[in-house]
Simulated assay, not measured.
Amino acid sequence: MKDGPDLVADIGGTHVRFALVAHDGAQPAHEMTLLCADFQGLEQAARHYLEKVGVRGARRAAFDVATAVTADLVKLTNSPWAFSIEQTRRALELDQLLVINDFTALALSLTRLQPDELHKVGGGEGVSGAPVALIGAGTGLGVSGLFPTREGWLPIQGEGGHVAFSPVDEREDGVLRVLRARFGHVSAERVMSGPGLVAVYEALCTLDHVVAKGLKPEQVTDAGIAGTDPHCVEAIRIFCGALGTASANLVVTLGARGGLYIGGGIVPRLGDYFFGSPFRRRFEHKGRFSRYVSEVPTWIILAETPALRGLAFALETNFAG
């Protein structure tokens, strides 16, 4: 077995974040964020990172990816990158390469988060030791959770962001009709993600017979918060409300009475707007199970790169999925 640190990488649709872990139990260090579009693939990005931090090679590695990991060949959902796990292990001369879903890695980090890295939204106290749920919007929509076992917490490896979008009023029904004509199947991710914000904005413009501007996700968010474009205002309102409904669906499905954690990059970007948004009201609007979900706390994850901690923990515990 080689000497040297472990390499961890959080691979999203837009960015890849690398770090080194000196030994089991250590925190990830020497973090660096790179644009995926700047590199032909994962191997090239990893070599560039190792060169920049002055490390000749890593001993082991754990990578998370924004897609399901079902075979040796991994193809990212929202990125052109694809790679073979075994070929990448050999190319980087690693003793071990672990590849898991990005929200599985984030779920593994939840027990390592500090109180000041979380911001509570609404009420609820939760049940200690009960399952917890995880959802988060960024380039895509990730979903996971943790279940208590005798050996510790067991993360869910799934693709819950691709369940069908569930509208709750006529306006959202209209958005669904427009998006169905465009995409066919309208997943939750088609609405609750960066591209989803743009798609909802464009759908609202179509419903109102207005020509949509060529906006990027961050422009929709900024204009919505500033109130400078009525369709952007409505788009982020629908995003927050839909996220509340999807979160409640996840909680009742998993029996996650321990709480719901919100990851991803979009909600933190919304800042104070999110606390006055329809999120928590829609979360608690669950008919006969409204009281059930009202007792479940919801937290925003404020930590910058928590998934890297989850990957370090996965290597430390030899997590096998």
Rank of each mutant, 00 (worst) to 15 (best):
K120H: 12
T317A: 11
L113C: 01
T139E: 02
G41Y: 07
C232W: 10
G129H: 13
N318R: 14
D229C: 06
F319T: 08
G214S: 14
R171L: 15
A199M: 05
E172M: 09
R90C: 10
E31G: 13
W299Q: 06
D64P: 04
Y201V: 00
G158C: 10
R89M: 04
I156D: 07
V121T: 07
R177M: 05
G161Q: 08
A212K: 13
I301P: 03
F147H: 11
G321W: 11
I266D: 03
L270V: 07
L94N: 02
A242W: 01
K75L: 07
V233Y: 13
R291W: 12
V132E: 00
L197I: 05
R288N: 14
C232S: 14
A312Q: 03
V186G: 01
V168D: 06
G241W: 03
A19D: 02
Y49V: 06
K2M: 09
S79H: 06
R56T: 15
G124W: 00
Q96N: 13
A320K: 14
L197G: 02
F239E: 01
R59Q: 08
L50W: 11
Q87A: 14
V69L: 07
R280H: 10
D173A: 11
W81V: 02
G184I: 08
G196C: 03
G161I: 11
L179A: 05
P306H: 13
P148W: 12
E189Q: 10
V53S: 07
G57I: 05
R280V: 04
A61Y: 06
D208L: 10
F83S: 00
T67L: 01
D229M: 07
K286R: 15
E117V: 09
G224E: 03
G259L: 00
A37Q: 12
E316Y: 07
G258I: 06
A307I: 02
F39S: 09
L108I: 00
I156Q: 11
L315E: 01
V296A: 06
G264M: 06
F313E: 11
P297S: 11
T245G: 13
I262S: 02
G255K: 09
F279D: 01
V296H: 07
T88G: 01
G54M: 01
A223Y: 12
E172L: 02
F39L: 00
Q114M: 11
Y261F: 15
S294G: 08
S128W: 14
T298K: 09
P195A: 10
E151P: 00
G4H: 06
P155T: 11
F289K: 14
L50T: 07
G12H: 05
L311A: 00
A314F: 04
H162C: 07
K213L: 12
S79P: 04
G129E: 11
L250V: 00
L42I: 12
I300W: 06
G263L: 06
E304D: 15
P155G: 09
G4I: 02
L42Q: 04
Q27D: 15
T104F: 03
F183K: 14
V233E: 15
L308G: 03
R237A: 05
D38C: 00
K52E: 12
T88F: 05
A203K: 05
A226I: 09
D116W: 14
K120I: 04
A58Q: 04
G244R: 07
V186Y: 06
F103E: 08
L204C: 02
Y261R: 06
H119Q: 15
A71D: 15
L94S: 02
L215T: 09
